[in-house]
Simulated scan of single mutants.
Amino acid sequence: MNVELLAVFAGASIRLAAPMLLASTGELISERAGVLNMSVEGMMLTGAFLGATFSWLTGNPSIGLVCGMLGVIPLALLQAFLSITLRANQIVTGIGINILALGGTTLAYREVFGSRSNAAIPGLSRWSPPGLGDLPVIGEPVFHQVWLLYAGLAVLIATWIVMRRTSLGIALHAAGVAPRAVDQSGLSVARLRYGAVVFSGVMSAAAGCFISIGDIHTFTEGMTNGTGYLAIAAIIFGNWKIGRTALACLLFGAATAMQFQLPMLGIRVPTALLIMLPYLLALVAVAGLIGRQTAPPALTQPFRR
């Protein structure tokens, strides 16, 4: 493989990993606080639809991004209400919301766009860090990415700092490890978990917007195509640690990029196998075949005072 093709492959891997990175950043906080937000897929799809719709209506993709992120908050509050207040099964409620989001966005897409389904949707601009974008060979394909990717990296770093260096991070960790101790300290476990789920929803919506108005510049029915589930698998793959989760997202992105890069290199691999590859890696992670996984002890466990 020559350097040019390797650079294109690296750039494609980063671009395809970006939605998983955004979604997993929020989902990791939710799971650290003790709530498994299985509705990441539905929140991504809803964010993708709202972002594309308002970007098309206003002609401004930044407004579409803001509307997509804010518009998902009611869905995140619904997930939090069912999981935390009603103490319903978090997996069942999450899957139910995913089905609701798929049906709702499909119906709304047909009503809003209709025969205009092929209309061009304004997309987010690309940006490269000063100096890096001018590097020979690798500058353009690797570093010239949608600016939302770099914003997501900044949020990832800020999240790591908050979780490792602040009292809020300690409280969120404790909510997923020993919620009764958090309650006895005078903090509200429910508020911490509600905030974590809402943050997860906002980041999932940003991930959906990255797909619709950052990468593809259109919306199609069910366009997230399981990316939300891969984001959850990346957290398991990364053993609930931010750095490892980011690397897992990059691995899944590279596996997805192979679908397009291997045929360009003349390597004959069954298309179905290439499409399956990211999900096979996710299955390996979930099955625990990459080593011992240490989930937060109170994950999925409702808290009762």
Rank of each mutant, 00 (worst) to 15 (best):
L274R: 05
R116V: 00
P136E: 03
I14C: 02
S13K: 01
E140H: 13
A120W: 00
Y279P: 10
G104T: 15
L75E: 07
E4K: 08
G96H: 05
L16I: 10
G131T: 10
L45Y: 03
F9Y: 15
T93L: 07
L153K: 01
P141A: 11
T227R: 15
F81D: 02
G214L: 01
I235N: 00
V286F: 04
A298C: 01
P297R: 13
F260V: 14
F54D: 00
T245N: 04
A178D: 15
V40S: 07
C67P: 02
R180Y: 10
S83G: 09
G176P: 04
L100N: 05
S185F: 12
A233L: 09
S83T: 14
L77W: 08
G114M: 02
R165H: 08
G131Q: 13
M43I: 03
V92K: 13
Y150W: 12
E27R: 15
P61A: 09
G133F: 07
Q145A: 11
I157Y: 04
A88Q: 15
I242R: 12
M163L: 14
E111W: 09
P61N: 10
S13T: 04
S200T: 12
L86P: 06
L100C: 10
G26K: 14
I138Q: 00
T224K: 12
V269P: 02
G131A: 10
L262M: 07
G94W: 13
I157R: 04
L135W: 06
L153E: 00
S83W: 11
I99H: 04
N118G: 01
L102G: 02
A287E: 14
L277R: 10
W147D: 04
T245G: 06
L75N: 03
A18Y: 06
W56K: 06
T224C: 05
N37Y: 12
